[in-house]
Nucleic acid binder design. Structure first.
Lengths: 107, 107
DNA sequence: TATATTTGCAACCATATAGTTGCATTTATT
DNA sequence: AATAAATGCAACTATATGGTTGCAAATATA
């Protein structure tokens, strides 16, 4: 369906998911879903939905342990975004200069 | 409504918009909408919708000139994503190691 | 002036998304 | 064995999204 980078970008494009991801990555230990969802205003099931999206993007890993499911953040997929950005780095200093020179000429 | 980084991330989270942005940034000159949309399968109006999203994210600038509207890419807002990523850089080498040590202990 | 080109706007459609509630199931605890 | 806790699943809702078509308006061109 969707390619990897799209999944990753869509996952972090949502503010709530960024918050969830952040909470997990700064946590010293993996967190069970209920405990994690207590940190948020939305319902546990709402959090679970976001977790699924994050998991499909590879940004979290969930491991079962008895009746609990422990969530653990994995920042690695973010490298893919970094990679994507790398190409545009060459433009983000110069492009505005190019733009203004364009505007000088044409407007 | 939405904060800046969310707008930027949502803008580039769509594959078609990434393509449009790419086409514009590698173009040597600014492109009128019709000429730009000829490069894509979707309709001109479809492209226009994407352009609006990109414009609201600051990723393109449109300047009127007679009946034509010239589109120009601006990579600068991508720096914001780069900034966001910077914090997680410290995790993307170590987090998997942490994860496996966690799995060793608990599973 | 008549015609062609570039565009915006509006309506519409199908699907995705972000959230909710209710309930059943599995696993712990008493 | 009875109860409590953690979770998944399903149904539902409202809104956003990515696309379309049709048409009117502004601007060039013949």
């Amino acid at each position: 369906m969707q390619d990897k980078i799209t999944k990753i970008l869509k996952a972090i494009a949502d503010p709530t998911r960024r918050e969830i991801f952040h909470a997990l990555i700064i946590a010293t230990t993996a967190l069970p879903i209920t405990q994690l969802s207590n940190q948020f205003v939305i319902s546990r099931q709402g959090v679970t939905k976001h977790l699924k999206t994050l998991e499909e993007a590879g940004l979290i890993v969930i491991s079962n342990q008895g009746r609990e499911r422990y969530c653990h953040a994995n920042a690695k997929p973010l490298q893919e975004i970094n990679q994507w950005l790398k190409f545009y780095e060459q433009f983000w200093d110069t492009s505005l200069k190019n733009l203004s020179s364009y505007l000088d000429k044409k407007i």
